[in-house]
Computed example of a mutant assay.
Amino acid sequence: MSHGSPVFKALFDPDKFHEGTTLATESRLEVPFPEDDPYYMSILCSILHMRRDMLPKFTTTTMKEFAKLCDKYDCGLAVKLFLDHNISVSLPNTTETMLKEYLDIVVTLHYAEAVELIANLLVYHSTKALISRLHGRDSLELDALLAMIELTRLRARREIDIHIDSTFDDLSTQGDECSRFDETCKSTIHRTFSLMEQLKEDRLRPKTAEGCSLEDLLRSMKSVRLHDPHGLDDCEYGCEDADGLRQYDAAFYRKADQIRMLVKSTRFSMV
């Protein structure tokens, strides 16, 4: 146990505490831990003694309580492999609520790589504001991370909003130029209407995307198809035909990749 925890190492040091002195002269030592839950302490002892066959299947709640015990005895590194495995097998099917609980756990135990991974997942999969969930926690470190995750999420969604607005502006400008030559030309009007309908259907616009995650929005951007709407033909004054709309499809595709790079470049380092 001394190898896995600096606290236990000091406790069992024959030159520091009574427990260490006793253990140096006797083969058996009983140490009371009245403040600790026996269930979690037995799990900790099993891990430190490599008795993986005695380990239970954790829930998020029990994992959080166990993490607090590990933090108390400074043995996060010794149990990291066990907790990493329990968290990683759950991530593919985890919920947003569970992600937030896992973030709490890995912040408590200072698992930097896991913090980066879970923070990124929260940016992509959160559907509600994380800021509203801060309630003066004991961990300022966790609060700071949640705030950073929320700012990254909002920035990414704002980038989508700006891109959609600029696309609308561009199409509207084309429509204005076309109507100066022929008021009966409906090509750009149809094109703009088609775009607006698709954006509405795909729920791309962040302002109206309640309950829609960033991941959902980015996937919708990748699936935008504006190059084949019905009734778009070149007018005699040079309006772009349906093929001309491919540039907008490509622009949405590229913008989605840029936003992913923006999120990827964000470092959610612990305070």
Rank of each mutant, 00 (worst) to 15 (best):
N120Y: 14
F181L: 09
I118R: 03
A156C: 12
K186M: 10
R158Q: 14
S172M: 09
D170F: 06
L146I: 07
L171A: 02
S166E: 13
L171P: 03
K186V: 11
R153F: 06
D143H: 01
T127Y: 04
T184A: 04
F168E: 13
I162C: 04
S132F: 10
S179F: 07
L154I: 12
R158N: 14
A119C: 09
R155W: 08
I162A: 06
R180E: 14
T127R: 13
C178N: 05
S187H: 02
L142D: 00
L142W: 01
R155C: 11
Q174S: 13
F168G: 07
R157F: 04
I149Q: 00
R153K: 05
L134G: 06
I162F: 08
H163G: 01
C185K: 00
D165Q: 15
S166F: 09
T167W: 00
D169W: 04
Q174N: 12
L142P: 01
L140P: 08
D170P: 00
L140E: 15
D165N: 15
H163R: 06
T188K: 12
L145S: 04
I131L: 14
A147W: 04
L142G: 01
D169I: 09
C185R: 01
E159V: 08
D170H: 07
V123R: 01
R157M: 13
T173D: 12
T184Q: 03
I118A: 03
D143M: 06
S179R: 12
G136I: 02
M148V: 10
K128G: 05
L146Y: 06
S172G: 10
M148W: 05
D161V: 04
E177L: 13
K186D: 09
S126G: 04
Y124K: 02
L145K: 03
I131R: 13
K186S: 07
T167A: 01
S172Y: 11
S179M: 10
S166D: 10
L122N: 00
D176G: 00
D170K: 08
L151P: 03
H163D: 04
R137N: 13
N120T: 15
A147L: 12
E141K: 06
S179Y: 07
A147I: 12
L151Q: 12
S187N: 13
L121W: 07
D143I: 02
T173F: 09
H135L: 03
D165H: 14
E183W: 05
A119Y: 01
H190Y: 10
L134E: 09
D161Q: 15
A156P: 03
Q174M: 15
S179C: 08
A147G: 11
R137T: 11
G175L: 10
T127K: 14
T152G: 03
V123S: 04
S179A: 14
L130I: 09
E177P: 01
